[in-house]
Deep mutational scan, measured.
Amino acid sequence: HNLTITQGKLFFHYNPKLCLSEIHKMEEVSGTKGRQERNDIALKTNGDQASCENELLKFSYIRTSFDKILLRWEPYWPPDFRDLLGFMLFYKEAPYQNVTEFDGQDACGSNSWTVVDIDPPLRSNDPKSQNHPGWLMRGLKPWTQYAIFVKTLVTFSDERRTYGAKSDIIYVQTDATNPSVPLDPISVSNSSSQIILKWKPPSDPNGNITHYLVFWERQAEDSELFELDYCLKGLKLPSRTWSPPFESEDSQKHNQSEYEDSAGECCSCPKTDSQILKELEESSFRKTFEDYLHNVVFVPRKTSSGTGAEDPRPSRKRRSLGDVGNVTVAVPTVAAFPNTSSTSVPTSPEEHRPFEKVVNKESLVISGLRHFTGYRIELQACNQDTPEERCSVAAYVSARTMPEAKADDIVGPVTHEIFENNVVHLMWQEPKEPNGLIVLYEVSYRRYGDEELHLCVSRKHFALERGCRLRGLSPGNYSVRIRATSLAGNGSWTEPTYFYVTDYLDVPSNIA
């Protein structure tokens, strides 16, 4: 807008934040220059609390790290170098490059900038070799853009010569660093050979998330399962459950009422301010606690030095998902009996873990797994792929695949051998790939016309006998059925096997 004052003059007093240069501009645009008398524009009460600059400061050096910015700028000295009290560095987070010096300023003089007072450097006698002032900004957020400017702080001049310097606002972004852990990993099994893994992005990506790394490792069953005799009275049979499938998407929606109208769909109840505040506090606490764990609990591995020492970490090797089922080394339970199943799973520490690289999504279907087997899954978020990966501390989750139908069934015939004193040795093959492992066998036998009897055969007993022995049988026709019990439950009964026990007292003698 054009402003013209045809008559009258300007009068400025007691404006401590208004620089004289701005008042002189007002004289020019209003056409009143030359009308004012000496005392109409006070030299001592206008701009006496402001830094009124008329020179431009330029930054000469900028260096960044993930949490620091090192700045240096060209030296500046007023005509009387004693008038320079120091520099004021202003900075704040700036997602967009549209910041002005006066953003967030209120009537009390406060604003949204963080201000650092910096002492002037030592003055050199040689004007050509003056030290460049600077400042190291610490405690910054990774991968965050900051708006920065600097200006001088000078003393009051009796001659009211307006001098000083100020830089333009520059924008500097800190470097990326390792992201925080992925949030809320959930693993479920939808079949006997697959596990579905879902997660949420890290709360602090500290860069642009480029991919996720998912490692999985087959877990050995508890050692007590191999040692305890679950045929003993009072000892509860062990059981394991597989990871249940995901709930429906509708039930997972946030901010939804727990109660549904019987007449149909209901609208979600909005969260109160107290609920939102509580969630923010919980989120802040979780982030602080995660940072504490990362800094205190997890110790970084030592990389190899120039002395030739090897990095103890196993090298990563990509495998196809079809090879995942046989990740671990199978060892027989008892070496003397080769027909026992290889369900003991000690994992070799030198073995390469299978892994998958996930790009542009937060889910993965891990296939080719062994049925009813526990897996430990390790999830890392990465925001750099080359020249070397920059990934987060791992988040861990466990899951067990679903049982395989008929995996616990005894394959092959049940054979028998009759000894003296009416002892019958029953023999059968253990299931080759049971659900988890076989903890015991149930032997059901009966003599024709009598009630059915049951015998429990422990895992250890089966390994020693290759089956079991029935003792003290009365003469007669017998039928026997056997079924295995694994961590997933009972298998199917075998087809009945028949044998006849004679009275050993009636056996004919070869003595003449």
Rank of each mutant, 00 (worst) to 15 (best):
Y375A: 01
E227G: 14
F499S: 00
S223Y: 12
Y504L: 13
R313I: 07
V365W: 04
E388M: 10
K302S: 11
E388C: 14
E465M: 08
T343N: 10
H461S: 10
E442S: 10
S203E: 12
F372R: 04
N435G: 01
N339L: 09
L235V: 09
K233N: 14
T288H: 05
K236N: 11
Y498A: 13
Y292M: 07
P244M: 13
V397W: 05
V397T: 03
K287R: 07
E247Y: 13
V457F: 06
L228T: 07
Q252C: 13
D450V: 09
S284F: 06
Q384M: 08
H454V: 06
R400P: 01
V397Y: 09
S458Q: 04
S348R: 11
P238K: 08
F285G: 05
E247W: 07
K460A: 11
T303N: 14
S398P: 12
E433I: 15
S251F: 11
W493F: 10
V329L: 08
L437Y: 14
T347P: 09
A488S: 07
E389F: 12
S239M: 09
V411C: 10
R318G: 03
N490R: 15
R459L: 10
G489H: 14
V457N: 02
P413M: 12
F337D: 07
L369E: 01
C468E: 01
S479H: 03
G322R: 06
Y375T: 02
R390K: 11
E260M: 13
N435T: 00
S320E: 09
D311M: 11
A335P: 12
S239V: 04
N326T: 05
E221W: 15
S458E: 10
I366L: 12
S474V: 11
F246R: 05
E247F: 11
N208V: 09
E260P: 12
P205E: 02
F285N: 04
D385V: 08
E350L: 10
C231E: 02
E227R: 08
I410V: 15
H425L: 09
F289Q: 05
K236A: 13
F215P: 01
F215L: 08
F372E: 03
G306M: 14
M427A: 12
P346T: 14
E442Y: 15
N383E: 02
S243K: 03
G306N: 09
S344P: 10
Y504K: 13
D503W: 13
G234F: 14
W493H: 00
K432R: 05
S341D: 04
E465W: 09
E378S: 07
A335W: 05
S392T: 02
G306I: 13
K302I: 09
S474F: 09
T303W: 10
E362L: 06
K460F: 07
E389P: 12
Q252I: 09
N477S: 05
F337K: 06
Y500T: 09
F355Q: 07
F289L: 09
V331H: 15
S248E: 04
E282N: 02
C266Y: 12
M402F: 14
K460D: 05
E260W: 13
N435R: 01
G449I: 08
K432Y: 09
D273K: 07
G207K: 02
C267H: 15
K302F: 09
S283D: 15
D250M: 12
Q219A: 06
L293P: 04
T497E: 08
F298K: 02
D250E: 12
F499T: 01
P312A: 15
E310Y: 15
G472M: 10
F215G: 14
E221L: 11
P338Q: 12
Q429M: 15
P387Y: 07
V214I: 14
E356D: 07
N422I: 02
S479V: 07
K271M: 07
E362T: 11
V480R: 01
D311C: 04
S251M: 15
A399W: 03
A488M: 08
K236V: 11
Y375F: 09
R301L: 10
Y292N: 08
V423W: 05
A394W: 13
E265K: 09
S509A: 08
P496Q: 03
S342Q: 14
L379I: 09
S257Y: 10
V457A: 03
Y478M: 00
P413H: 15
S257V: 07
P205S: 08
P312K: 06
N477P: 07
G412E: 07
T386E: 11
S203W: 04
P338G: 10
E356R: 10
P238A: 07
G476C: 00
F298L: 05
E282V: 10
L364P: 00
G436T: 07
H454R: 10
I377W: 04
V296I: 06
V297T: 09
R390Q: 07
V480Q: 02
D450Y: 11
A335T: 12
P332G: 09
D385L: 08
S492N: 03
E281N: 05
S274A: 04
C468I: 07
S398L: 13
L280P: 15
F419L: 09
L228F: 12
N255P: 15
L440H: 13
V345D: 09
A336N: 09
E260T: 10
